[in-house]
Design a protein around this nucleic acid. Structure first.
Lengths: 244, 244, 244, 244
DNA sequence: TATGAATGAGCGTTCATTCAT
DNA sequence: CATGAATGAACGCTCATTCAT
């Protein structure tokens, strides 16, 4: 038998590549930087990847797929109705937001690379595509909520979707740039707080009142100060993670 | 003082460099691409710039400075008070937003490059710095508005600032990716509509009611449908343009 | 104006490339060997050639074309007939052979490279093609001469063409390997002497008698010994210069 | 003594190497190509050969030795004299030619490689050396035949030897490029036919008449047409198999 | 012995920068 | 000032060879 395939090599290479691509971008990253960091020879790189581009693509595509899987979970839209269900819905949204941010936190190195536009033009599409997919997702949710009378009718779903997903995007950036793990649930509560009011139709506001606050009560940081403050909320499918 | 020939060459080079850097990023852009496009010799490039990096830096720094100048204009914070002044304030904010977006539209090529992370890691700081400056600006505005009782107290200014500037950032991206000039005032109206409700304190909402809708009445796209929809608003100092 | 294009560079590169390719073959030759020898930088090589292969191809193709031009000259086939014309024909053939060998002598470096199979498989076709073209040329001449009764009918033109062109090929090799310029006319006379007898039909031999000896009288080396020896000849159009 | 597995591997490697070297030449052939084709591991290659060059050398030297053994067999020069012996001699010569061509046909793959200059300059000597050895052999035979009055005195043995061995060389090339086994005896008959006339001294021609035709009667292709055609022959020791 | 993963020297090519004109 | 030929450091990738298993 040949020398046992060093299973660590591939993993070390991927880890090193993530870091190097993150630090320098695709073009400026040198294969040798990666192999040096991985502690393997230059040749070993080509045992695992066809080319530098291939390595980059593998990393990014794999990650985008995972990220999409994490973000996408159709947020089981609210089944209109009783106050209780709205409350439940907010809870689910909040939980999902937390999940997404947790995932981003775990993968902050890669996200940084992608945000840094690491691949240059030829790979930017991967990132833009993802961002747009999320944006469209948000948009369709808004349309639905508007149709059932939950959201205000004077909102342009396409513009609002951009604003919401952009907001969430920035939150992710803030997250991955944080030196130490922030209070993610609190952040997510802020997201709910901010958008609930802006989105809900006047009628809904009355009904949904409190729902938001109840859904995200642990708002650690900003101390659930003002109980009367909130207002309901019906959605906010913010998601977003994308970068660049 | 250099001759005319000089200035022409320099300008052509800068224009060409913008395009090439935009298309390929700093590393992948070749000096020859730039000089070819500019219609000058390769040597001429070094008559005007110390190096490729220098050229890139000049372009980006100049632009960031201009952008900052455009965005910054002290937001003449509201001088608390009468309803009228709040209305006035919203009008000013709206006008300013439009100005910023117009500027971005004019310079969309450069913005694209910057968003694409064109310079790679070594220059990302330029962009991040700008983004952070805007974010801090928004944050301090929020703090002020909170202090004077205009904004809800249960908001974490740092998180909210991120969300707002991220939202605006994404709007700018949407703008510069648009194939043809969109209805910028309408977009800005949407921004006001969305955030006003979420930010204002319950007390203020009553007072400021309508102010938003009045401030941005031409909301072309989303047809100022729902009059009762809005609510006042006190701020939103979002701005932001940054990328990457 | 830019530095004057060093017209010598290209020429030096071609000369150096000839030598290096000759010494090592296409694959083993290093671009740096060539540029070093030419006294220019490695980069300069790519100012004149697209790639190493391109350089090789240029050299070989150019040369093959010139060689073909030199060899081809339709040998104005004999217009059957009187002894005199046959004599004339031999003279022309002899003169043409000399011309071809002279050309080969002038370009012996290149020929060596080609004979050495310098280009490896991917370029061998250039050489084989040339060899085959010449062989077919010889073959059709033989057929013609056989048809008009000049050559023996018991010869297989395809086999004989191979033998004759192979013989000439080897002569060329001997020539280009010679340390100093040999007596080319004498060599060519030998060619005539050898093949005339073997090719001519018995009838023609009587008629053509002497023609060969008269056509190439200066047979320096082998001292025109035996006048009665020879016999006429009607052909020998072998030519050929070499392949692979 | 190595085991069976050994021998099998070695043989497979040699067979594969022959093919690969033939197809690509020494430099361009990759060890992996060879081991893949042989169905063994890359490491196995170095169990049998010191290096790629060593493998190439072994193949070529072995083959050249075998080829030399096949070609060389002193052609038991004619023992001057009676007509009968001349006839016999031609028969032996013809038989030997056939043998050589048969050998070449069997080993056409290797011959192709060698002709293609497979080894590049560093190994061309192997081939050139062989060609020269054959040429010298032919030359000395010619001298001998000239001395005993069999051949014309006006031939330059060195030049004629080149022509004859070159002719035979080309015949071998034609042979090994043939898609299917040609009529080797017929080809050899052509060789005799062509050179007999050109080489024999006038005196000998009368004596030896017919000998050639009788020696190679099966001249299938060119149908032993012309009985009066030939003339005797005393030599032709051409052989030769190839060079670079 | 056989395997094939690992190594690293080596080479083709690119391109920022220089400089003779 | 302008030009573009020349330079050479740098980098992606290949592949002969080694060696742990």
């Amino acid at each position: 038998m040949p020398r046992l395939a060093d299973r660590r090599a591939r993993i070390e290479l991927l880890r090193a590549a993530e870091v190097i691509f993150t630090e320098r971008g695709l073009t400026a990253a040198r294969v040798e930087d990666i192999t040096e960091r991985a502690g393997v020879s230059k040749g070993a790189f080509y045992l695992h990847f066809q080319s530098k581009d291939d390595c980059f693509k593998q990393i990014v595509e794999t990650f985008v797929a995972r990220l999409a899987g994490c973000v996408e979970p159709p947020p089981m839209l609210m089944e209109e109705g009783e106050k209780g269900s709205l409350n439940e819905y907010f809870k689910r949204v909040h939980a999902h937001d937390i999940e997404v941010l947790e995932f981003c936190w775990q993968n902050r190195a890669l996200l940084k690379m992608m945000q840094a536009g690491g691949g240059g033009a030829p790979y930017a599409y991967l990132i833009d595509e993802f961002a747009q997919r999320v944006e469209r997702q948000v948009e369709s949710t808004i349309r639905y909520a508007t149709d059932i009378g939950l959201y205000r009718r004077d909102l342009d779903p396409s513009v609002i979707a951009a604003l919401i997903s952009g907001a969430f995007d920035r939150l992710v950036r803030k997250l991955i740039d944080a030196p130490s793990r922030p209070d993610i649930p609190a952040w997510c509560a802020q997201v709910l707080q901010l958008f609930a009011q802006g989105l809900l139709a006047p009628e809904a506001r009355a009904v949904a009142d409190r729902a938001v606050t109840e859904a995200a009560p642990h708002s650690a940081r900003q101390a659930a100060v003002d109980p009367p403050a909130s207002g309901s909320r019906g959605e906010r499918r913010r998601s977003r993670a994308k970068p660049t």
